[in-house]
Design a protein around this nucleic acid. Sequence first.
DNA 1: CTCGATCCCTGGACGC
DNA 2: TGCGTCCAGGGATCGA
Length: 296
Amino acid sequence: MPELPEVETVARGLQREITGRRIVSVTLGKTDFIDNPEEIEKELPGRAIHEVRRYGKFLLLRLTPKRDAAVAEGDAALLVHLGMTGMLAPQAAGEPHAKHTHVVALLDDGRELRYIDARRFGRMAYLAGESLKEELKRFGADPLEAGLEEFTARICGNRARIKALLLDQQVLRGVGNIYADESLWKAKIHPMQLGAKLRREQVKELYRALQGILERAIVMRGSSIADFLDVEGQPGEYQRHHRAYGREGKPCFRCKTRIKRVIVAGRSSYFCPQCQKAPRGGKRQGRRQQEMGKGV
DNA sequence: CTCGATCCCTGGACGC
DNA sequence: TGCGTCCAGGGATCGA
């Protein structure tokens, strides 16, 4: 499941592999995950990819203007979200298309940039000018770029549960279920804790934990749980270092207590019930008890 | 404002 | 062996 480190890994691979290549033609398969398939067919051919970078969980393939463009349209880009099972990689045109190959862009070096996605939970869109700007503005701060000040403001200015906040792409862009759970475990914060109720010191711990984990995961080329593969078809290694995610019933690496799983924000959330203390009033009651304990 | 529920989609795990 | 069922999960959407 591609989150920030996995998408970063793919972006770096694509940046190395296809920067400078011109798109010759585009062939589409199923298009229900594409915002504007007809524009993709019309706008991509003839443009070169001049940069590939990550934006949250999106890959941003920045495109040059068309050679015969009559009017400037501003920046143009292909946005690609890998969803759960998406993969974007250049392959030799002669290679048979894998099952679930839905977009094929022939490049000017004879290779094909292919988008393969069994579940089609991903998303693809061609955007330019203002609509590109508007789209990018919808997302929150990149957790690796945000300073402690901004991180704190975004987490504390919110009454939702910390797990929900970490997953909310309008708060932070790029964090998904795995790295949310891993950073909460590291910072010893219960996933149901309210963001606004976290102490300053806890927020700082979380900030450091999240950045450290994301950076380390990028070095290890991401986590391969089910089928994540990078541009070269290689799995990541970070799944070997998970401390909470997917470890229900297994001993906590710190205290040996069995890792528990609860649903928060509609997602499985793994945590250590000993290290990550439940917020007062807990999950089971859900009643509206507050104040008094307001004192941070 | 925040929540849960529901839908999208397919493959893998599991039970019988 | 083969079926049915459940589950995974990011994100949009809707109603509470």
